[in-house]
Amino acid sequence: MNKVMGGLMVLFALVLAIAPAFTDCQSHGKMLTTADGRSIAMKCHWAGIAEIAAAVPLGLAGIYAMFGRRKDTLRFAGIVGASSALMGILLPTILIGTCANPSMICNVLMRPTLLASGILALVSSAALIMTAREPQFAPAGVAA
């Protein structure tokens, strides 16, 4: 189970890191033009860049989950994965956001892709934490 969840976490981390490069407004040639004529990237681009910072710990946690055997390690990987996935959701929604116009490519494609990957990574991490729980009852003879 932990191998499957770890694999999913790595997969969603890759989507979080790579998808913005192909789905933000800049990748479709849309940029802001300032009063002095310079072209600058819109905020969806920076949200996409920031996603890499959430994707790296998520991917590493996924690798740990795939190869780790101790329940402590798996639980820690799950907690790191869940925190990173949550960050992956918050970056394009609350922390940085995307462009204002709902019909722009970042809102049509990038944001839903990041949200879907973030939510599914969060669920995978939660499942990993659940499977790595300590047994509820102490083994016979240990109890006081």
């Binding site: 019909s103 809102n107 494609l109 839903p112 949200l115 879907a116 599914l120 669920v123």
Partner: peptide, 17 residues
């Protein structure tokens, strides 16, 4: 069902387009 609802909710504008 969770995946289908998530997909249709998040990607509805892409579907419309």
């Amino acid at each position: 069902i969770f995946v289908a609802v998530l997909a249709i909710y998040l990607f509805r504008r892409l579907i419309i387009n």
